[in-house]
Write a protein that binds this DNA or RNA. Structure first.
Length: 294
DNA sequence: AAGAACTCCTGTTGGC
DNA sequence: TGCCAACAGGAGTTCT
């Protein structure tokens, strides 16, 4: 569920609670999420200090003082909540009429040295956690094939044109491929294609280059991806059903969706009179405007 | 080898 | 109201 902007928002919320703090104890309430927890997970975390909390693609990386990295992925329904040390409970859904998280879905509780508790709940359990040595992180199976960070300076039209060349899959499917661009998901792929006025059906290989130079569509796509992700982070991510920022405040970017979830509504593209359609590609919904996306 | 289908799991929603 | 199929922000594994 959470894509790059949501994970980044969670990172910003967790950072002041985790960084510089120690794990006093960790409750691990089941042996696995999507994958088994690593051996002696809770024990290995106990007493460790968090030196930094980073993000890579949709992964959160808590760098520990013993050279290990606590790797966390939220899957589709993973969410964190924080009980502050001063006793204040910041429950997800606090600003909503939604029920609180069912206790059965709360799988991990990190008790911090300063008295704060960081809770991880995940109804579908598509999320996962692992402990990996910092020195081998980039060679680890989870990270080895991971693609470029779309907000990095290295992500340029030249780079994208080069990587899309010869691809026979749809551009929508290509944008979801984490080995290519790491962090885009189903919402922002649709939104970026709409901003760039590119049909999700277009074969990725037909977008890129002419005589070695990126075509306008490639330039527009890179610009759109960066813009939509940047704006979403600024808005604190998108809140649909499950996602809340770590403080429990909802994201606001859902109000800026131009196509995602907007089936049947008029296209909000400038000067476009089209209607937003929902189609299915590779088993996933794509929203787009057939009138302005070519 | 690339691309697509299948799979994991639980909860919500919409149609009849 | 009840039931049931469809769908949900991900991505590793298994097929073709």
């Amino acid at each position: 569920m959470p894509e790059l902007p949501e994970v980044e928002t969670v990172r910003l919320g967790l950072e002041p609670v985790l960084v510089g703090n120690r794990f006093a104890s960790v409750e691990q309430r089941r042996k696995d999420l999507r994958f088994p927890f690593p051996l002696n997970f809770a024990k290995r975390l106990s007493g460790r200090k968090v030196e930094a909390l980073d993000r890579r693609a949709k992964y959160l990386l808590a760098r520990l003082d013993d050279g290990e990295v606590l790797v966390m992925h939220l899957g589709m329904t993973g969410r964190f909540s924080i009980d502050r040390a001063n006793g204040e409970k910041l429950e997800p859904g606090r600003f909503y009429d939604e029920a609180t998280i069912a206790p059965a879905h709360e799988h991990v509780v990190f008790h911090m040295g300063d008295g704060a508790a960081v809770r991880y709940a995940d109804a579908r359990r598509f999320g996962y956690m692992d402990l990996i040595r910092q020195s081998g992180l980039n060679e680890h199976a989870l990270f080895k094939g991971l693609g470029i960070e779309p907000l990095s300076e290295e992500f340029t039209p030249e780079w994208l044109a080069n990587r899309l060349k010869g691809k026979a899959t749809s551009i929508k499917a290509a944008l979801l491929d984490q080995r290519l661009i790491a962090g885009l998901g189903n919402i922002y792929a649709s939104e970026a294609l709409h901003r760039a006025k590119i049909s999700p059906y277009r074969l990725a290989g037909t977008i890129p280059t002419k005589s070695g130079k990126p075509m306008p569509k490639t330039i527009a796509l890179v610009k759109s991806i960066k813009a939509v992700l940047g704006a979403a982070i600024k808005a604190g991510g998108s809140s649909l059903r499950d996602y809340r920022s770590a403080e429990g405040r909802p994201g606001r970017f859902q109000y800026s969706f131009k196509v995602y979830g907007q089936e049947g509504k008029p296209c909000r593209g400038k000067g476009c009179s089209g209607t937003v359609c929902r189609i299915v590609q590779n088993g996933r919904s794509t929203f787009y405007c057939p009138n302005c996306q070519k």
